[in-house]
Design a protein around this nucleic acid. Structure first.
Lengths: 122, 122
DNA sequence: ATCAATGGTGATTAATTTATCACTACATGA
DNA sequence: TCATGTAGTGATAAATTAATCACCATTGAT
């Protein structure tokens, strides 16, 4: 993994939160896993645009940070299921709220960004 | 500004939210402005580690996305004050909750990351 | 022996975000 | 004219995150 050069500010809750969860896919991942999609291969299918490699990286970080854990079933073919730890679960209300907020905001953002590129064209 | 190559998924609330607010400083910024620190020069002082240039960029994006607006007082020296729009205000409960969560999680993260680098050394 | 299915890693590049530094502009007072 | 304080921009480099592609391991069936 990458060894960061600019340190985290542990005294700012927002910094800490962003560190573990502020990346392109992590909220989505936690959300999907909570909704019941637990296996890597299913997550790749469920999450539009994520690649297998990126998924694995994010899962590993979430696991390392203690938001996820996994169970390995020694079946054939191999089955691995991820689940939210207590810490992970404690984030759920926030994820739900943020998702709702984003859905609400989407049209506004779309309009803004479309006008943006329109003006840039002229 | 940067012209993104990988498009936003407007159907995922979390993607949308991350787009406007998922960057290193934006939550902090909204938080500080809400708390009453409104002028760029004061924000630079208040937010540990942010530079003037970066601050201006983030303010401009938040303004463009409609979370912030500003009032320009034609005094000498010039005074500009930012404030949260209605949309910005609608994010406050989330910011507060995330900050709280992060504060709570900080010790755990610290421990994990310290053990990390210890193991890497051996 | 070879293939399929699944989970996983390594090396590298591309995309994106942050940081740095040097500027402009404005109006005032020394 | 020149310095001061504030807000802001431009160009560029550095840091970080995400994407790509090729690989390994396991087990069982063909």
């Amino acid at each position: 993994m990458y060894q960061r050069k600019i340190p985290i500010d542990y005294n700012c809750g927002l910094s800490v939160a962003m560190e573990v969860v502020g990346s392109k896919w992590k909220f989505c991942l936690l959300d999907e896993i909570h909704k019941g999609i637990k296996r890597p291969k299913d997550l790749v299918l469920a999450i539009n645009g994520i690649s297998k490699r990126v998924l694995q990286n994010q899962l590993r970080e979430l696991e390392l940070h203690g938001l996820l854990a996994k169970t390995i079933y020694t079946e054939i073919p191999l089955r691995v299921e991820y689940y939210l730890t207590e810490t992970g679960v404690s984030l759920l209300p926030l994820i739900v709220a943020l998702d709702k907020w984003g859905m609400n905001f989407a049209p506004q953002l779309k309009t803004i960004l479309e006008n943006e590129s329109f003006e840039t064209q002229m």
